[in-house]
Simulated assay, not measured.
Amino acid sequence: MPTTEQALLGNLVRQVMGDALGFLNAAALRVAVRLDIAEHLASGPRTPTELARLSDTDPGHLARVLRFLAMRGVFREDEQGAYQLTPAAELLRAESPMSVRSMVLLLTDEMYWLPAGRLEETVQTGTTVFNEIFGGPLFDVLAREPHRADIFHTAIADLSVTEQDPIAASYDFPDTGTVVDVGGGPGGLLHAVLLRNPGLRGVLFEQESVLTQHRLGDPAIAGRWEPVAGDFFGRIPTGGDIYVLKRVLHDWDDRDSLRILRATRQAMANEAKLLIIDAVIPSGNDPHPSKLYDLAMMTNFDGKERTRAEFDTLLAAANLRAVRVIPTPGTLSIVEAVPAPPAAPSAPDEAEIR
């Protein structure tokens, strides 16, 4: 009989070995989504042979992938050897109200996969290898390769569907005024805010190519919003009472994030507020999704998730001041900021934001 110490050591070895092979979790999940396994099981259980016939795959190999995913709670094998949907597998269906299908396809795409395989180089050099692999920064690649842009923008828009209403409900918006959503994508969050606050007007500030795909055609908010095309590194629309940056700053390093914040501050009146909606990394060793997402930002964008202290430093450099951090039901938090008072100490220069 192994001693307690030996048993604990064995568990640790298995944990570390499992982590080392963790890339196979993503690979197997991608196989299931690409082969539409969840869709094939929507009408009831099927055997690996039946699923292989529907997906034009080898039944033996498919069975092994399904067995692995069932171990992780994605699908379940019954006593007859057939597989069926689980609550986790339901999320892989395109018609699920909380579908993550498009996000799985994005996060397991080579745009994420290949840079992650060279994470050591990123850590050594302090910059992503994405540009070397794909011939430029991610957003430049999306601009010139429509098929990659479709994968990316579809996934981000679908992710927003799961977030936007809880976020809109987490903040006490004013009864009247104008909300400027800076880099707001197709406008999902702005739509949720305007629906919940009928006295507000909205501005969706985005690149022209993104504005053409907006999701603000709801008659319930007709006449209460306008699109404005532009670049958040340049001139941002003035006249807003609330400015929003949702999932924007985490895509950029501190230098570029400071440029965005300074452009936003220049557009803001002294009474305006800024809502930065991003993950806020908690202190300590406890698990938190932001710590995983931070690595994804580092490998693909030279971006980062930030702690409260890091947000404070960035905001101070842009002549802004964080007032509070408001949690939302998901991973994201709302960092509410206001213009810093004139008597505030001089802000750090860009050399300190590196």
Rank of each mutant, 00 (worst) to 15 (best):
P348G: 10
N285T: 12
T125P: 06
V228C: 08
E271L: 06
P348Y: 05
L8F: 06
F205L: 05
T178I: 13
E310A: 10
A82N: 07
G202H: 04
G202R: 02
I156G: 01
I334R: 02
D253V: 03
A155R: 08
V16C: 12
L274V: 03
P48L: 08
E208P: 00
T299D: 08
E310Y: 10
M1G: 13
V129T: 14
G303F: 01
T49P: 05
G223L: 11
P342C: 01
D36N: 15
L85S: 03
G177R: 02
T212A: 15
G177K: 02
R76E: 14
Q15I: 10
S346N: 08
L51H: 09
S209A: 15
A222I: 09
G330N: 06
V104M: 06
E121S: 11
A143Y: 02
D150L: 14
M71K: 10
R67Q: 12
G217P: 09
P342W: 07
P329E: 10
K246S: 03
R247P: 02
S257H: 03
H153G: 05
G330Y: 01
P342H: 11
R144V: 10
N197I: 03
P146N: 00
A52Y: 07
E350V: 14
G184V: 01
L211T: 06
N300S: 13
P137F: 04
T331G: 11
Q15T: 13
A267E: 06
A296T: 13
N131D: 15
T176I: 02
P59H: 09
A168N: 04
D140F: 05
D165I: 13
F205A: 01
Q15A: 15
T238N: 00
E163N: 14
L69V: 11
D286H: 14
A279K: 14
R101T: 04
E77H: 08
L195N: 09
G284V: 13
E121W: 09
T122R: 11
H61Q: 15
P342T: 08
P219I: 05
P87Y: 05
F173D: 04
G126R: 12
G136E: 05
V180K: 05
I236L: 10
I242H: 01
M298V: 13
F205V: 09
T49S: 14
V16I: 15
G202A: 05
N25W: 13
T176V: 09
